[in-house]
Structures are given as C-alpha cells and as structure tokens.
Simulated scan of single mutants.
Amino acid sequence: MAQSVLRNIRYRGLTTCVPERAFSNVQDCPPEQRSERERLVRNIGIETRRVCLEGVVFSDLALVAAEKLIAGLGWEKSSIDALIVVTQSPDYPIPATAIILQDKLGLSHGTVAFDINLGCSGYAYGLFTLGSMLSAHGLKRGIMLVGDKSSNPLSLDNGLLSLFGDAATATALEFDEAAPPMYFNMGSDGSGHKAIIIEAGGQRVPIQPHHLERLPGADGISRKGTDVILDGPSILNFSIREVPVAVAELVEFSPFGLEDIDYFVFHQANRMINETIRKKLGLPAEKVPMSLKDFGNTSSASIPVTINTRLQEALAQGPQRLLLSGFGVGLSWASCILEIENAYLPPLIEI
C-alpha cells in the first residue's frame, strides 16, 4: 500500500450540483415489473437517481458547483492557483476539461489545470494530488471538480433498473500551516481492469460501426461497444476483500483508532457491498452515512455527495474527523482521514 501524510492543507469547502430531474427504479418501470423491482431495490439500496437533461454534461454541473463554491468562500479568482478535474466524462477526448473550465470560470492564465481519469476512487486520489501540490509550497489555493455523467439513456427509454446517477462536486483546499494532517492509503490492481470497462473508444479498440449497435453479449445483455460493462461478482469480491483491509491499514498508519473517527464515508457502490464492508469493520450504522437511496452510484462524486447531503448538520456543529474510502474502476482504491472544521457547505444545488 502507498501510505502518506499531507500537512498544512485545510479543507475549506464543498458544493454539490445535481440535475433536478429524478427517476425512480420503482415508480418508473412497467407495472408488471413493480414487485420484482421493489425486491431488487431493497438489495441494492438505489431507489432514485438524478439524470441530466439532453445536452447537459458533467462539466455544466461542475461549472455551477465551482462558481457557487468560489463565491461562497469569497475567493478572488486570481488567487486560485490550481484546478483539477477528476472525471471519466470529459467534454472531449482532447483537450482536458479542466482547461476548458479554467476559461469558463475566468481563472487566470497562470492556473495549473489538468484532468485525472479516475472513477470510484477518484475523490481521495484527487485530494491527495491537489493537497500534495499545495503542501509543496508556492501554490496556496486549489479547486477540485469531481463527478461524472453516468446515467444510462437506455434505462430511461426502457424502464430498466439503473445504478448510476449524475452529479458534480467542487472542493476547495488551501495551504494553512495550522491545518491538521491528512492521512492517505492508496492501491491499485490492474489485473482486474476488465471488471469495469468500456471496451470501445480508445486506441486499443477504435470505434467501428458495429460498436454503435446494441448487440447481445456473453452475459445475454444487449449493449453498445461504448457502454460500460460491469462484472458484478468480481466487483463484489474485490470490494469486500480489499476495502476493509485498506481501511484498517490506514487507521493503523494514523495516530487514530476506529473509535476516534466521527464518520466513515464510503463510495456508494450498492447497499449489499457497503453493508458488508461496514459489518466486516464492525462499524455502527449511524457512523456510516449513505446517499444511495436518493442519488444512486454517482461514481467519483459519491463521497462528496454523501458528505454534502448527509453530514451538513453534523459539520455545522463543530470539527468532525472523517474517514473517506473510494474503490472500484481500475481496479483502484484510496482512503484518507481528514478533519473538517468551519468549511463552507451550502445546501445541494439542483439545476
């Protein structure tokens, strides 16, 4: 495991933007499937997810979240030194979406801006990347935009069960010598890269006409070559094998015990995975907030979405120590322990 401590980095704020449009896995399905759908929803825990309107993409949500965050903090845009975008839903293959948003946000030409292509583990990796840049001195303020447009249009057209929702979040970090340390534990296993994959569209498998047709796969599911393929059993086994160990190793690396953590915020994969992880770690349910029911699996945004929508009241009452843990596509995983105090966390933004 790659373990590290970041010093002098203050968590200044978090905003979350989601589409106003919501779809229900129970209500928005054919009536004859209602009973079976209710059973599935009880198992996966995803009742509703937010879905972008036609023509709206991740960066549109991210732009709104970033503008709200910068205004709420009262930061001059000229004082922002870095802009990192963590997404698997870029506007274009090239250029990087961060460069486009640097211009749309009116940030200076001296802003460091780049993308990170990560999904479920991306929030913790992004905190580590941006925090490392700021802790090296010279750079003082940074914004991290995290999320994806993950909803599947096929599920909307056909009333199919969907796990994924759309969301974008903006997080502000600032160099501060009085800030408490952040502790990180990260890992990857590329031998499992096919467990979550879009096969066509890169240079390994360039898009051909047949990739745009919905054809039945080996699992009997019809999909395009540009659709995501999920190996459910492999993802389940990976998650419940690696995450509890990674969390335990992070706690051992830090000066804290499990009892010293106020809340544990895990990537919102599905209810079965998350509950298994919670029970293996022996954590009380009240210390493990979940946003699955209302937003679904929002990829790299799921951890900040959960913080913003489930912990706003707790964070308003005083400093809170959180353990964040993301895991999935790659396969990759990353966990961190950080303290949040007096951060700007406005209510959820819906557009």
Rank of each mutant, 00 (worst) to 15 (best):
A2S: 14
A2Y: 14
I9Q: 07
R10Q: 14
V18L: 06
P19G: 07
Q27V: 08
C29I: 10
E32V: 05
S35L: 12
S35C: 11
E36Y: 03
E38L: 14
R39W: 00
L40E: 11
E47L: 12
E47H: 05
C52W: 02
G55I: 02
V57L: 12
V64C: 00
A65M: 09
L69R: 03
E76N: 12
E76S: 14
I84V: 15
T87E: 04
Y92R: 12
Y92N: 12
A96R: 03
I99H: 03
I100N: 03
D103M: 03
D103E: 13
G106I: 04
S108V: 01
H109G: 03
S121C: 10
G122I: 04
M133Y: 07
M133S: 07
S135P: 11
K140L: 06
G142I: 05
M144G: 08
L145M: 08
N152F: 07
P153E: 12
P153L: 10
L154Y: 15
G165Q: 03
D166E: 01
T169A: 05
E174W: 14
A179H: 03
P180D: 13
P181S: 14
D189P: 09
G190E: 12
G192F: 02
K194C: 02
R204V: 05
V205R: 11
H211D: 15
L212H: 06
L215D: 02
P216A: 11
G225V: 09
G225D: 06
G225C: 09
D231V: 00
D231K: 09
N237V: 11
F238Y: 15
F238N: 02
R241D: 15
R241L: 10
V247K: 01
E252V: 00
F256M: 05
L258C: 04
E259T: 13
D260G: 09
R271S: 06
N274M: 14
K279S: 13
A285N: 01
E286N: 14
K287T: 07
S291A: 15
S291P: 06
F295V: 08
F295Y: 15
N297A: 13
S299C: 15
A301R: 05
S302F: 01
I303Y: 13
V305C: 08
R310Y: 05
Q312W: 08
P319F: 10
P319I: 02
L324G: 05
S325I: 00
S325M: 09
S325R: 10
G326P: 07
G328W: 01
L331R: 07
L331N: 07
L331F: 15
S332E: 11
A334N: 13
S335C: 15
C336F: 09
I340Y: 10
I340K: 11
E341L: 06
Y344Q: 05
L345A: 08
